[in-house]
Design a protein around this nucleic acid. Structure first.
Length: 556
RNA sequence: GCGCCUGUAGCUCAGUAGGAUAGAGCAACGGACUUCUAAUCCGUAGGUCGUGCGUUCGAGUCGCACCAGGCGCGCCA
């Protein structure tokens, strides 16, 4: 049960009061409802009287009283209203409100909590997009958890969402990577090939080389002599790396709809097109043998090079071409999740987007904070170049997918994050993942027990007489009522961490209830009612966990 | 120096676009397993919301200035 019914009731009441007292209402009047801290203050509260009082220069309590008289006795779910404090209208709802929510959760199952699209948008969310020259690291793991959950949230509120991974398969680091692999490969077939300067270290390079050897034997023996052969070798190396990244992400529960190749749009001439566009509108200039973008005209603190004096494109130019392509694909909203080391490029990119004639407001850039891995209380040193880092695979191996995803979402995206690997691994009460999952398993366990013992209850849980439930149960059910609005808010603000906190609160209430109250009783109607509530709780936990990609266990 | 992020309980962090008495987990202390799973529960304790001004009926939340920490500021990607 969402709170739309409140909105329409209040809209009507405020208009009616305005008509009677001659208030001049502002054009865009949004009536919002909050949840009071104390349940003595009602199920919802509305501060509209105080908002109006400011503009109309009237007494807020009087305005509140006036609105209340227009509401009384009209709305079907409203039990009573109180004007309190400086002018809040506190709303107490009838039991039918939370009772119908229990039935809704059971009936709608996995759909419960999703809302029909009021204004559906076509949204693209791009994340991870790590260079295909090495295994994914923990920063990617965080981005993957964030992006995937955001996509789930945006879908849950009715949008059309596409997840995209930008494969940076052009440029120098790809050559260096292929050369690094080549050097190891040649060793395997007993030949020499120089290891490149600043080449990539790390065992995975040898694994890629071995993989190629297993598949192609010494087919690439002529590598050093023939460019065409090297190109095929490079593509094979890239292919193996990308596949390995896809596998890692898949194991993590993240599957992208689109893997977008940088090289593909470059080959279509997209870079030239951007240059023509910027040149033609005088937003680029030539200096010191290079081509520059007038980024300072668009809020950046310095101009940026687009084409280096050796004729090569910079990363920025490639990124502009890519984003131009995104805009041309016709999305209403574009979301980028960037790692903390990319914050310096945001202004240049947004400026370039504007310079190319696109609306930068369609773009939402989310910069995720740093991740620090802690083991035994100490931060682990991470050096990529030396091949000395914890990969995403190792992290998943160590703590598991569920704990990893949950921990990454426990903080808001922009915050720095300390990932305590010892805690994530623990199967103890300190670990919040298990706490929530356990609540789910507990409900399953109750039903299993009911079957085993042949407990008598109505298998049609929606037919249960929910008026048999008491205060504690009502409190839990009321939290279920807030599930949908929690999702809406989280989706709107792109803050999946809310889900974790909601689930912990719900699990906590249920654990508490479980310890205090026997669900399975000698009284079949009562048992049915309590089972209905339990099942509704289980469904909501399962749905919440699904949004963040964590599994709901049947037993633990 | 400029820009971005962060500053809330001993620790790690929430805080629903300005609302009513600032919350949770962990850690600490004291209790609860003959029970539908103790991976749980109940209770106790813990605060100058970094500092100072300001905006107003009302500020952890908004503005300004400081302080502290992190990151970024390349013809690298």
């Amino acid at each position: 049960m969402n709170k739309d019914f409140l909105k329409s009731e209040f809209d009507a009441a405020v208009s009616a009061a305005a008509a009677e007292f001659g208030w001049e209402l502002p054009d865009a009047l949004e009536i919002t409802f909050g949840v009071p801290k104390s349940e003595d203050l009602g199920d919802y509260s509305c501060n509209i009287a105080m908002v109006l009082a400011k503009q109309l220069k009237t007494n807020p309590r009087k305005a509140a009283e006036a609105i209340v008289t227009k509401l009384s006795g009209k709305a079907e779910f409203i039990d009573r209203l109180e004007v309190a404090g400086p002018g809040f209208i506190n709303i107490f709802l009838k039991d039918a409100w939370w009772q119908s929510t229990i039935r809704e959760a059971i009936e709608n199952g996995a759909e419960f909590g999703k809302s029909p699209s009021k204004n559906p948008k076509k949204i693209q969310i791009e994340f991870v997009s790590a260079n295909p020259v090495g295994p994914l690291n923990v920063v990617s793991a965080r981005a993957a958890a964030l992006g995937d959950s955001m996509a789930n949230l945006l879908r849950a509120v009715g949008n059309e969402v596409e997840r995209e991974y930008y494969v940076n398969d052009a440029g120098n680091q790809v050559i260096t990577f292929a050369q690094s692999v080549a050097s190891r490969y040649m060793t395997l077939i007993g030949r020499d090939y120089p290891f490149p300067e600043n080449g990539y270290l790390g065992d995975y390079i040898e694994e890629v080389a071995q993989h190629i050897y297993d598949e192609h034997g010494d087919e690439f023996a002529a590598l050093a002599d023939d460019d065409g052969v090297f190109t095929r070798f490079r593509d094979a190396s890239l292919g193996i790396m990308i596949e390995s990244q896809q596998r890692t992400l898949h194991d993590y529960g993240v599957d992208f709809e689109v893997w977008f190749s940088d090289r593909a749009i470059r080959e279509k001439g997209a870079l030239d097109e951007v240059m023509v566009l910027l040149d033609g509108s005088n937003k680029a200039f030539e200096a010191e043998g290079a081509k520059w973008f007038r980024a300072t005209d668009f809020g950046d603190n310095r101009d940026r090079v687009l084409i280096k004096n050796d004729g090569e494109a910079t990363y920025l130019l490639g990124d502009l071409a890519y984003h131009r392509d995104k805009y041309q694909r016709g999305f209403d909203t574009l979301i980028d999740i960037l790692g903390p080391d990319h914050q310096g490029q945001v202004q240049g990119l947004l400026g370039g987007i504007e310079a190319m004639g696109f609306d930068p407001n369609k773009m939402k850039m989310i910069i995720s904070g740093h991740v620090r891995l802690l083991r035994e209380g100490n931060a682990l040193a991470m050096s990529k170049r030396a091949g000395d880092f914890i990969s995403m695979d190792e992290l998943l191996e160590d703590v598991g997918k569920d704990a990893a995803r949950y921990f990454f979402l426990l903080r808001s995206a922009s915050s720095h994050l300390d990932f305590d690997m010892d805690l994530a691994k623990k199967e103890t009460p300190e670990n919040p993942v298990y706490y929530v999952q356990y609540a789910h398993a507990r409900v399953r366990s109750i039903f299993k027990k009911a079957e085993e013992k042949g407990v008598d209850y109505d298998s049609d849980l929606c037919a249960a007489d929910l008026s048999l439930l008491g205060q504690d149960e009502a409190r839990i059910a009321k939290r279920l009522c807030r599930f949908e609005e929690m999702i809406e808010r989280s989706a709107e603000r792109l803050e999946p961490h809310n889900i974790c906190y909601y689930l912990m609160d719900l699990a906590s209430e249920f654990h508490s209830y479980y310890n205090k109250t026997k669900v399975l009783t000698e009284d079949p109607p009562l048992t049915s009612a309590r089972l209905a509530l339990s099942e509704a709780v289980r469904q909501v936990i399962a749905n919440g966990l699904a949004l963040i990609g964590v599994s709901p266990p049947d037993a633990m």
